[in-house]
Design a protein around this nucleic acid. Sequence first.
DNA 1: CTGCGTGCAAATGGTTTGCACTACG
DNA 2: CGTAGTGCAAACCATTTGCACGCAG
Lengths: 140, 140
Amino acid sequence: MNTFFREKLKQKGLKVTLQRVAIYDTVLHLKNHPTAENIIEYLKNSHPNISVGTVYKVLDLFVENDLLKKVKTENGIMRYDAVLANHHHLYCTETDRIEDYEDEELSNIINNYFKKNKIQKFKIQDIKLQITGKFNNNFK
Amino acid sequence: MNTFFREKLKQKGLKVTLQRVAIYDTVLHLKNHPTAENIIEYLKNSHPNISVGTVYKVLDLFVENDLLKKVKTENGIMRYDAVLANHHHLYCTETDRIEDYEDEELSNIINNYFKKNKIQKFKIQDIKLQITGKFNNNFK
DNA sequence: CTGCGTGCAAATGGTTTGCACTACG
DNA sequence: CGTAGTGCAAACCATTTGCACGCAG
């Protein structure tokens, strides 16, 4: 179980610890881009002894090693995203909810555009769409 | 001078103060998306008595009233952008520099795409491209 | 004049850090 | 076993807040 995760760590010479497994599982479980605080709160139950400092250190480690991505937000509080496949984000201006938006067709259009139209003196590593707006229904 | 700025404030019933003018001018002058700290530092010379709290309050006010835009960054420290015309951003992973990227053709392509392909239950207000990568030359 | 704006300094809160201790490999 | 990793609590630092005073309209 979690072979992908364990392999990725080993491959970089990092130890597979109880804390790292728990934190990674929590991000997967919480989905919808949890904050560090969300994660800490959730872990209170199952792992009351994992400390705040550790959570932050481990999250940074995961981001550096491409196990998670950081999501920038309007208020500067960082969120974490376990979905690594290229995707975009919908930002709701009313509820601060952030939802994934995958759209291969659109991604292809944009990638093709940049294949034809290089940006001067700039090497693109990643392109992300930040779509701001409102969800029509308030529930969900 | 600065009629646009003064009008916008009056139009909302906000007072045109020395501090607001100075802060707005500073953002225009510093260009390249200054942080609040950049602005405070710059103002030390010309207006040593403008306080930190005021700068933050005024920047927020400007954002609320569409005189400035907030730019989210990798480390959570907010930056401010005086360019209101729709444009995208290039994020340099090496230097943390953020540069404007205007591309009407691309914006049109994306807008047209969403005209044909609505996102379910979501009303788009704004679309921004976040292009991460590296500048080839280190100077500039 | 009269409240909107400001200055100041203290408080907040997310994140980082340093160091002694723990446990993965 | 030896070192990478953790827990803890203090430190950090960007931003916010409360309140008495000041100035734009």
